[in-house]
Design a protein around this nucleic acid. Structure first.
Lengths: 150, 150
DNA sequence: TCTATATAGTTACAAGCGTAACGGTTGCGA
DNA sequence: TCGCAACCGTTACGCTTGTAACTATATAGA
């Protein structure tokens, strides 16, 4: 296999894991994005902010950066957009005036409940397509590859 | 952490397949991108064009669109950039003057060989991390999810 | 205390992107 | 044959993004 005198096999993009991962990620994200885009005009980052605030209740912007692995400038802009539409409230912290607590408004919670339910259904369909057991193994592999180090 | 008032059926981004796919795709693509970016100043689309021309020899721009699932405007810009750096040649077709054949120059082929070898090594490391057998199953799942329909 | 280093979040600017329109070409059907 | 639709590739425009700088606050060390 690794005879140094013979040229090694040519590279094939179609079997390259990063490429395949991108294709699958694009296809599924693109497909689900209609759910929050057409109904609420949110982009992906805004939806992720809503999803994390919906789950954790209250977070700071930098918390969201860490948890969801999103750039802080993206979070900053998403928070502004969500606030302007009345889906999110900011609250200053007395003990550290650099940060602010973010919380979904009632309207924001309703949106989280709506899109969240559809996300659960969407996820269930994807897992059914893979087979429920295989989906578990698949998820483990994704987490392994997503781990920072390489 | 968890708001005790939220019901347990709430959506959790951390188990959502499109999210996990994005994380894994971003992590691996980002990690490998250093290989072609620092050495040759290519972006992802340019690298994909090189990879496909390296494999197939000669293609038209629209061929690349179909094969690599890239927007035609991105391909157009990538081809221009690669041509200006002398890594790719265009050739008019007599029987259809709308299209042009694209081929890597000698320099382009050398780049393909270099980056391609590193890609193969990178891919091998990823698959080793998953376990070679598991990686096969993983690849099948990715192809299934990347299929257009949902 | 005073300095300097780190952090939180915002903003400016340039680069990248997708949508839509465009010019040029081909092929099909009336 | 003409006319019209489909196609290839490029360009124009506006929106999104990342990098780097910035303000403001907090913390650690001399």
């Amino acid at each position: 296999m690794n005879d140094p005198t013979t040229p090694s096999a040519d590279f094939d993009l179609q079997t390259f894991l990063p490429y395949l991962l991108n294709q699958a990620a694009e296809a599924t994200s693109q497909s689900f994005q209609a759910t929050y885009r057409t109904a609420y005009g949110m982009n992906r980052t805004e939806w992720r902010v809503v999803a994390n605030l919906g789950k954790f209740g209250t977070l700071s912007a930098s918390d969201i950066c860490r948890i969801a692995h999103v750039e802080k400038t993206k979070v900053s802009r998403a928070v502004l957009a969500l606030e302007q539409r009345g889906w999110l409230r900011r609250e200053a912290l007395e003990n550290d005036r650099r940060r602010e607590n973010l919380t979904l408004s009632t309207a924001g919670q309703a949106i989280f409940a709506d899109v969240g339910q559809k996300a659960i259904a969407f996820d269930r369909r994807l897992r059914a397509r893979l087979g429920v057991a295989a989906a578990e193994e698949f998820t483990r592999a994704l987490r392994l590859l997503a781990a920072e180090d390489p």
